[in-house]
Design a binder for these strands. Structure first.
Lengths: 358, 358
DNA sequence: CTGAAAGCGCTTACAG
DNA sequence: CTGAAAGCGCTTACAG
């Protein structure tokens, strides 16, 4: 119930506990005790104070309280790109869980820049957040926050291995299962289009892919693994290059939703039909993948759960600062959909297909 | 440059300005002046203090500073659903612009609940944010924040008409243009699938639709305007009902991206082909709309720009608390794509098409 | 059961 | 040019 509807315009100055105390005819100490519920206070008094507070539209200053108590009820969150549905879902999960636990979320979007990331972390330290959840783009942010003794949880990928908490997806296993699915369909030339292979995500996804290939006795052809970094245009060009080769792969495993989009568009540009000419599988499901025809086979990560778990872990860490770091690994389901099917009968034949594309 | 890499583990207690002052051999006042740059300080002294601060990994406590200065450098942001790309893009724009202007963003997701929204606003007031940007779901939050004299900008829709600032899209005009586009293609039975018509968004989009119909001399058939609220399942059912009528519309204008998705899926369920059997246009473009075949004709809102503009407006408001409220109206482009085409030759004929659907 | 006093970390007139 | 003092709004032992 948001205070009373003041008929007259409220005071220009915001009401403080001093105002409440005076209105109720008690000391600030007593007013504080009445309002917070800690410490004794006479029966009538409590009500009198609460009434006065309501009448004044008093909202305690959380910053002043935190300054005195030296504990904060906000957490800092640092993601790479809110416009990507993965990070947006992650932020949604974090926000929900934080609210449930009584915390406020400060959110910064670092555009994938390591410098912006550290700058945002500094701001979080200045604001004395209780802890930080981050999808790091470089080790710097982890080092910085650790040095400042800020409770920290890395999500999705990890740079502080063994030194900080993390909530990750079982990348290697999910990646292996997707590759096995493709092999099971009969593919023997499977390309992996990936952003990079230094981060834990890239490393593990690549490892899962290789494991599956090796287990099936497929040769590991270097040219089938393409690292396209983070530029959408470059990724699309890389996908097109792959498809225009004299010996194109019959399947492409795209290591994230952006790369899958790049392959999808490149295939459309070149008139390559899914799944007849090419099978496509994606790590990370995105809304469009179940809207298109055929739908795209994908690893469903449940980014919302990832975010919720990260907050839970962070609050545990805040409670027990000395406990050894822990990495929580979440499973992921492979959603088999229409974009993956058996390879073309005579794969080698499909060569110079439709238009040359842009 | 994030402090030095301390070889020994840092102190358990965070360094304060007192520590810095002692290390530099000056008073706290002088240390403060040296660090903030306000007020005189001797030449050698400034360097000595800065050096000491760096050595201690000193990060000023922003909450303490704000308590003293009574001004805050954070803004509160309240959106309805981060998982919807519209709100995610909006938040991305707000976050970027806030960072550029030196502000931190506190973000809350209210799940479309008016109660959650007010609760989050209370938290923002407690944290003494400099201002709030909100996509309101009910008038309550606007009333609450106004009563507490918190600078406020409403985005996308507006409840505090004439009383608070707003950044809106020109809903009526864009809606009219989309409808005209459909009429131009030859459609005469155009349905409007909308969430509700009490908010400014719904009201204006509906008005634009009616204006275009009226101008073209089309009868305003009540049964062609369907308000489906916010449940995805219900929206899909409503869309299916529309399509299964004995006298189905030849075009549907969906008033947001979720409703467009509902129509898209319902059409697929029923084997209704776009644009041959049905034309579909959407208010608000979403990533999937340019991935599917045919692509979906949509009003492109540029949610990122909406967010950036809202922050700019909010900071202006903070500067000039007394200035009269202003509403900024942003244009929107109609992206004509493949989902809209001429109506079927003999519309009435297409009746009991494929499967009955769920 | 209540109030005076101290103090969280900072900044800012004001003496000197 | 510098430092002692006051104060932002709150909470919390501690006397009484």
């Amino acid at each position: 119930m948001p205070a009373r509807d003041g008929a007259a315009p409220g005071p220009v100055r915001r009401a403080t506990i001093k105002d409440v105390a005076e209105a109720a005819g008690v000391s600030r100490s007593t007013a504080s005790r009445a309002l917070t519920g800690r410490g004794y206070v006479g029966l009538g008094v409590r009500e009198r104070v609460q009434h006065a507070a309501e009448g004044l539209g008093y909202v305690p200053d959380a910053t002043a309280r935190h300054l005195k108590q030296q504990v904060s009820r906000s957490i800092g969150v640092l993601v790479s790109d809110l416009r990507n549905s993965f990070y947006a879902d992650l932020a949604a999960g974090i926000s929900q869980q934080a609210r449930r636990r009584g915390y406020t979320m400060m959110l910064a979007d670092d555009n994938g820049s390591a410098a912006d990331e550290v700058a945002a972390a500094e701001r979080f330290v200045a604001l004395r957040v209780a802890g930080v959840v981050v999808t790091p783009v470089a080790p710097d942010v982890v080092a910085y926050l650790s040095r400042h003794r800020v409770p920290l949880v890395e999500v999705d990928r990890q740079f502080g291995e063994g030194a900080s908490d993390a909530v990750l997806v079982d990348n290697k296993h999910a990646s292996r299962r997707v590759t096995e699915h493709l092999i099971g369909l009969g593919h023997r030339r499977i390309a992996l289009l990936i952003d990079e292979m230094e981060w834990t995500t890239g490393r593990e996804r690549h490892a899962g892919y290789e494991e599956a290939c090796r287990a099936a006795g497929l040769p590991l052809e270097e040219s089938l693994v393409v690292a396209a970094r983070w530029d959408a245009g470059a990724a699309r060009a890389a996908a097109a290059d792959l498809l225009r080769r004299p010996d194109p792969p019959t399947a492409i495993f795209a290591a994230n939703n952006l790369l899958a989009e790049a392959v999808w568009r490149a295939a459309a540009d070149l008139g390559v039909r899914l799944p007849d000419d090419l099978s496509l599988a994606s790590f990370d499901d995105a809304p469009w993948m179940s809207m298109v025809t055929p739908q795209v086979t994908a690893v469903e990560q449940d980014a919302v759960a990832l975010g919720e778990t990260a907050v839970t872990r962070l609050l545990e860490r805040i409670e027990a600062a000395q406990a050894p770091p822990r990495t929580v690994m979440l499973g992921a389901r492979v959603l088999q959909r229409g974009s993956t099917g058996p390879p073309p009968a005579r794969a080698a034949v499909r060569s110079g297909s439709a238009g040359a594309g842009a």
